[in-house]
Write a protein that binds this DNA or RNA. Structure first.
Lengths: 402, 402
DNA sequence: CTTCGTTTGTGGTCGAAACGAACATAACCT
DNA sequence: AGGTTATGTTCGTTTCGACCACAAACGAAG
């Protein structure tokens, strides 16, 4: 027996130069510190397998560029010379924007993934692209004004509820916003003079979950988010987000869960999102004398029929759907956000048991099911991650700007 | 707007040494030549982006090790000095083994993916692990005897119809063979004194499809294979095989296609494999006066009821199932093998139309649906690829043995 | 309480590995 | 013969690791 080879890329192509090694190592180091938080130099040496000298040199370069700073060692209590900590610099900031149907939200996120400043403006109606752009620019001004002196904004990440062409920043189709073929990324970039990355909100969220949220550390992860507009989601497989040939992979809301179910706008019948559905939950709540607005809050406590049975039904269908997807992806963790998280909170045992009963024998046993943790910061953190991408990928290319 | 970042690994960790560059480049070159076939040095230069000098040096090293050989340039008809071709050496061979319920098959596959020699022995009953091992060893002796002098066997790849622990070569559970917790890989390795890699047959097949078969060149690919024992499959996503946390991802035969369907042994109801099923097809054939053995052959030609309707039904369900999976994976190509390939051959338009009608709007349009091409060589080529893995990953590590 | 050994880790210099640039040359077409 | 495309070789640059000297913590012995 020898080296296992699974997981290697089948399509080899790009050659590697000598200087790419440096780029890769700088990227690795900065990414580690950004995702994991402060790490000692000794820990970095162990994690990367690189030589102390090399770590030292790389570190000096990152510190000189202002991306990290060193601080005194923690009081460890162990023998030996203490190793200084390498911290992500909070002076490096990404702006995150989330235009949605009822509000525009903007945040400033520091390297390390902490949200430093937030601003939100509710809108009376669904904003047009131009309105959203104007509001976003105003909010950005507010946010930047609140940032301490000396921070440098390295870019902007946008999370849009719709299909996005990531390479151009074009919003191809955002049905809930009513946007179509809008070059929002380019317009924003022109107005700000900053690089802008645009992504789908679910795709952005799953990255946040994987890097800073409940899915931290899992290389294989499913994220399902329930909102008024349906169920979105995303998948991390082998440490990489599942993208698909056209960037549309991971439409988990449209997996079949009940052939006898309700017709879905996607043209099919009995999709997960038509069967596990916030509107249906709220409708049942109102019949039971609970206001639609309180439906989610009431999930935990005993409630009159038909609300109780509807909650049970949705929990069962959700479990069935998760089990179905587990046999496809064999994930390490399943993270539930939005009202799916609330549903799970209220029917944890029922859903867990349903998944175990339904999933292919060995797969269900080891799966970690969890609620999303980052709450309303999820999209901001994820969008910022989009903006941090180029920096993390090639720190040396950014030295000039810092 | 700037560099797109999708597809990058979220979990950075391993540092890169200077010598890894060489390993990576050698690997890239050898993999290109192995997968793509003979390439000129100039083409290699363009594909890898490396310097001519470097390509020359790498090439010399690979040739010295005996993995490739140079030959005269093709008569191109273009101006300029002709560039010599770099060919995969057929003197480097991997052995491939496929123990199945009714036969053991062994093949010798050369670098470049060509099957050089095959041997097969049918068994009267399902072979025990020991029986299978003995037969395999005999067949291997036959095969090696037929190989020309001077070829070197670099390893063995095994495709097993069951769950496999790839790191140890342990067959955890192979229900159709009735094997459980068999250290087949280790036994084989001990008997032969060669490195042995064991993999699941579907996983192995999808790699063959992606590298040498109908899915060639597709970075996002779904493969579905129909056999008497059900529907197996695998997924290539972003150029890598979908593995999952425990190596069990891609159980595509157990996605739900009909909640009102037949109970499946997996515990659920209406799985793709219970609804699109060879036995049901054969049963319908017999009622229609066609022998079970001829059922698949009759797929193309008009046939009496109820066979005709059963074929239509299975085609429709297959289309529905494919559409469902397309919305999850957004693949570039879908490849159908076994009787699914025959079914597609007979009902191509119907299945295509069904997929288009059912799939999420933009996703179905671009998908290439194809029949598997490598036929009964598929598993051998795939298993050999398993054996080639370590060599392709690190050619310099193998120089000594050549 | 001081001292000294042990442990763990940093800093700096030097050498080795690997790739790219530049120049000279070779082979093909028109 | 001239233009075009490609190879081969030498030399310089980049980058990492090995090695040696030294620093900072703990703890045991005097």
């Amino acid at each position: 027996m020898s080296i296992p080879t699974s997981g290697s890329h089948l399509t080899a192509s790009a050659g590697s130069r000598n200087e790419q090694t440096r780029r890769h190592n700088l990227s690795t180091l900065l990414t580690l510190v950004h995702h994991h938080g402060a790490l000692s130099r000794a820990e970095l040496t162990k994690l990367t397998g690189l030589n102390r000298s090399t770590i030292g040199a790389l570190n000096t370069e990152l510190a000189a560029a202002g991306f990290v700073f060193e601080s005194a060692a923690l009081e460890s209590g162990t023998v030996g010379r203490p190793s200084p900590m390498v911290n992500p610099s909070a002076g490096i900031v990404a702006l995150a924007i989330n235009p949605d149907i009822d509000a525009i939200e903007v945040g400033a996120v520091g390297l390390g993934g902490k949200v430093l400043v937030r601003a939100r403006r509710a809108t009376d109606s669904v904003p047009t692209p131009d309105e959203a752009l104007d509001i976003a620019l105003e909010l950005i001004e507010d946010v930047r004004a609140q940032l301490p002196d000396g921070v440098s904004v390295i870019g902007v990440g946008v999370a849009v509820p719709g299909l996005v062409e990531t390479s151009t920043g074009m919003v191809t189709r955002a049905p809930h916003l009513g946007w179509q073929d809008v070059a929002w990324g380019e317009q924003l970039s022109d107005a700000l003079g900053l690089p802008v990355q645009v992504g789908n909100d679910a795709a952005v969220a799953v990255v946040a979950v994987a890097v800073f949220g409940a899915g931290q550390g899992a290389a294989d992860l499913m994220y399902l988010n329930g909102s008024a507009s349906g169920i979105g989601g995303g998948v991390i497989a082998g440490g990489t987000r599942l993208v698909g040939a056209n960037g549309f992979a991971g439409e988990l809301g449209h997996t079949l869960v009940n052939s006898e179910g309700v017709d879905c706008y996607c043209g099919r019948t009995g999709c997960l999102e038509t069967e596990v559905n916030l509107n249906r939950l709220q409708a049942a709540a109102e019949v039971a004398g609970i206001s639609a607005a309180d439906a989610v809050a009431q999930l935990g406590s005993p409630a009159p029929e038909p609300f109780e049975s509807e909650v049970d039904r949705e929990a069962d269908v959700l479990a069935h759907g998760i089990a179905n997807l587990i046999s496809v992806f064999n994930p390490e963790a399943v993270v539930l956000g939005g009202f799916l998280g609330d549903l799970y909170g209220a029917r944890q045992e029922r859903i867990r048991a349903g998944v175990l009963a339904d999933a292919f024998a060995p797969l269900g046993d080891n799966v970690r099911i969890e609620r999303a943790r980052l709450g309303d910061e999820l999209l901001l953190v994820g969008a910022a991650e989009l903006a941090f991408g180029p920096l993390l990928h090639d720190p040396s290319g950014w030295k000039a700007q810092a």
